[in-house]
């Protein structure tokens, strides 16, 4: 029973939050707002799935915000300035992002750097590259096909939500049903055992940082498309929300524990909190304070749950 509560505590928090908000603002439970939450949350969801995978291997990825900004800028720049079509621009941007992920992985696996410091360095490098590439100015992308990625709908469902759903499904199948995915739990749960069982720990780690960068790249491109422009400062603090979401969703900071569905629950907790703060008209500054607070509380709750 206790295990049950622990495993579903995120869901309880989410339900309680929704209940609270539906009583305190009448707008919360409208269809439009709920769709809006899902849409707003899709970016975070994609990033959190990637960060969550690095956490499964007892790692972390602090560079996702920078990678998102970098890839958004590259995509925008290639479309606007280099006149590349989106079918070429987007893959190039994604590959650029993944190479930053590869850098993370190499620093961690072969440079023996602690993950948080390696990804902190990449965070600075990625942000710097973005500023250099954009010269510190936003790049506006009027290309309708590109803008469609962020604002279009298919059968009434916003495209970002569809992309999120597809990635969620892929992440779920990967983590729950493939050997490589299951082996990530082994790497995070007991690296030595994993190694002795013939699992390539180095390959697994390189893979998760590349996946995390891929997710961040995807999020960055969607974000750019939604705003019609690439902002060099976009995605700052995204890593914080992504880690908070993963932890709230039952992902352990110490590796070996977590699931795609759990992360989604955490993501929606953060999404509903953000939405609630907006509905309650709380200033963005205080929102940042509250998010820092929620982040710390999420970690504290998790630590207590593990101790019991």
């Amino acid at each position: 029973m206790r295990g049950l509560i622990q495993r579903f505590s995120g869901l309880f928090i989410l339900l309680a939050l929704c209940l609270f908000l539906s009583f305190s603002t009448e707008y919360f439970l409208t269809q439009r707002n709920l769709v809006n939450i899902v849409l707003q949350t899709s970016i975070l969801a994609i990033v959190a799935l990637g960060v969550g995978m690095t956490m499964l291997t007892a790692g972390i990825d602090l560079s996702v915000g920078s990678v998102a900004a970098f890839c958004g800028a590259i995509a925008a720049g290639l479309i606007v300035e280099s006149q590349l079509g989106i079918w070429l621009a987007i893959p190039v941007a994604v590959v650029a992002g993944i190479s930053l992920g590869l850098l993370n992985g190499l620093l961690i696996v072969y440079g023996s750097l602690p993950p948080f410091i390696a990804t902190l360095a990449t965070m600075a490098i990625g942000r710097g590259l973005t500023l250099v590439y954009t010269d510190g100015r936003p790049i506006t992308v009027p290309d309708p096909a590109f803008v469609f990625i962020g604002n279009g709908e298919v059968l009434g469902v916003p495209l970002p939500v569809i992309i999120m759903a597809a990635l969620l499904l892929t992440a779920y199948l990967f983590l729950a049903h493939t050997r490589t995915g299951r082996n990530l739990y082994a790497i995070g749960g007991n690296e030595k055992t994993a190694h002795l069982a013939g699992i390539s720990v180095a390959r697994g780690k390189l893979l998760v940082y590349m996946i995390s960068a891929f997710a961040a790249a995807t999020a960055g491109i969607i974000l750019t498309a939604r705003l019609w422009s690439a902002q060099p400062t976009t995605g700052m603090g995204l890593e914080l929300e992504a880690i908070a979401a993963a932890v709230l969703g039952g992902t352990s900071l110490f590796g070996g524990r977590g699931s795609a569905w759990g992360i989604m629950v955490g993501v929606f907790i953060i999404g509903v909190v953000s939405n609630g703060l907006n509905l309650l008209e709380i200033s963005s500054y205080y929102q940042q304070v509250i998010k820092g607070f929620v982040f710390i509380m999420a970690v504290i709750l998790d630590m207590y749950a593990r101790k019991k």
Binding site: R182, N183, Y185, A186, G189, N190, T193, A194, A197, G198, I199, G256, R257
Partner: peptide
């Protein structure tokens, strides 16, 4: 591996 099942541990890798 604590968070994997008994079966997965037996056939790990």
């Amino acid at each position: 591996i604590p968070y994997l099942s008994v079966a997965e541990n037996i056939f790990l890798g």
